[in-house]
Nucleic acid binder design. Structure first.
Lengths: 224, 224
DNA sequence: CTAAAAGTTTAGACAAATCTAAAAAAATAA
DNA sequence: TTATTTTTTTAGATTTGTCTAAACTTTTAG
């Protein structure tokens, strides 16, 4: 069994390895863990001893099969608890991260299977992220950033790539919530902001925001 | 904020102080914490520094107001999670203790208030123990042990004073579950075992078992 | 009331996770 | 390709919670 700290390292290494292909660097881990590079090196050695990561000095790290499997299980727990908090306890989507961050370390496979069932085996968490099943399999469908859409294109909001409370609160205020359909009216050259029709409402969204909203595109009435 | 370990010490000191009136002894804590007396002394000093317990060398310890309040909050969380596990996730009453032991340390007052509401503000946990409200108040009604009842007396099973899985499984098998009404047919002199009518079923219960079943007595049809 | 037993504390050590400061390796730039 | 910067590692220290062994109080028994 792993300590909370080890679990957090594994989870962070997993998330970092999704963004960049190669090995994960010490400094990147240190930043995410809010700690110092020296501490990361110490922990890295420990995780390598346990065969949870591959590590060669100065070359960064990579999860092994068992390390990856542990990390995905933590992600599964985190996202299931987020669903519970939003669906059952009526928390808002910007309020659940920190609580799920604690709950994800509760160690009881039986509990998680029953929770999954209680929630009717959800496929996605309240931010649209896919929930791995108990074997670690999950939808890898990647959505396109709102900022990549062109004039006239349409789609549905499927997720976000920034989970900060301030960003989520802002989206809420704009009405940009999961499942909402939208159509691009125009992309403004000057600042890259996006003018769009959200259901029936017209609004302008900054490029910064558009970069973190994930869209499933759809064919917009091709006959017209 | 307290560490998990500190919280466990407070909780154990609280439980021990319910049984015997005086101060709680180092060795008693050590036994419950599965640790050594020397370790307990170290922790005791730390908790005393934080003004969570009163401590004089060789004299045992006693919770202060704030220590007691923290301990009761942990008990509240433990019992609410047990209700959740049994009522919502359909665990059996003998399966929930260890999981609740982990969940009780999750630190989010908002979470606990919402959980309480989600569960419709239960007054008792699955073993009949009272759940403190958010101000730390709770029913102090103490029930009588089944082993204290006399021939002809009747009552309802309200709780248990042993929470071990083996004991609870045994009760389940006998049909001795919360809310069941019973009447004493006879108390056997030889071994102190109790013959009783449980609803319509006659059965014999050992003295050891009877000592850990808690009863609310009722007047048994005094007219007859 | 003293001697033995029981219970408690101290002293010194250890493992886990962290830190600072300094050394070493790798990457980058002139 | 050498010098500088960036990144990473090592060395040594700190904190938390634990331990063993020994010393010290308190309680109990004769």
């Amino acid at each position: 069994m792993q300590s909370f700290t080890e679990e957090n390292y594994l989870k962070i290494i997993y998330h970092l390895s999704l963004n960049n292909e190669g090995n994960v660097q010490t400094n990147a881990i240190a930043e995410r863990m809010q700690t110092k590079a020296a501490s990361v090196t110490d922990m890295i050695k420990k995780l390598a001893d346990k065969q949870l990561i591959d590590y060669k000095k100065y070359q960064g790290v990579k999860l092994t099969e068992s390390g990856r499997s542990l990390a995905i299980n933590i992600v599964r727990k985190h996202r299931l608890w987020e669903v519970f908090l939003v669906e059952k306890l009526h928390f808002k989507w910007d309020e659940v991260h920190d609580i799920a961050e604690e709950l994800e370390h509760i160690n009881s496979p039986e509990l998680i299977e029953r929770l999954d069932e209680f929630l009717s085996f959800p496929k996605n968490d309240p931010h649209g992220d896919p929930i791995p099943d108990k074997n670690g399999k999950f939808d890898t469908a990647t959505f396109i950033k709102l900022s990549k859409l062109k004039k006239e294109e349409t789609g549905i909001i499927m997720g976000v790539s920034d989970h900060s409370s301030s960003f989520l609160k802002h989206l809420e205020k704009l009405g940009l919530t999961l499942g909402k359909p939208l159509k691009i009216i125009d992309v403004i050259d000057f600042d890259g902001s996006v003018e769009l029709l959200l259901e029936t409402k017209k609004l302008n969204v900054s490029r910064e925001v558009a970069k973190h909203v994930l869209i499933k595109t759809s064919i917009d009435n091709p006959a017209s």
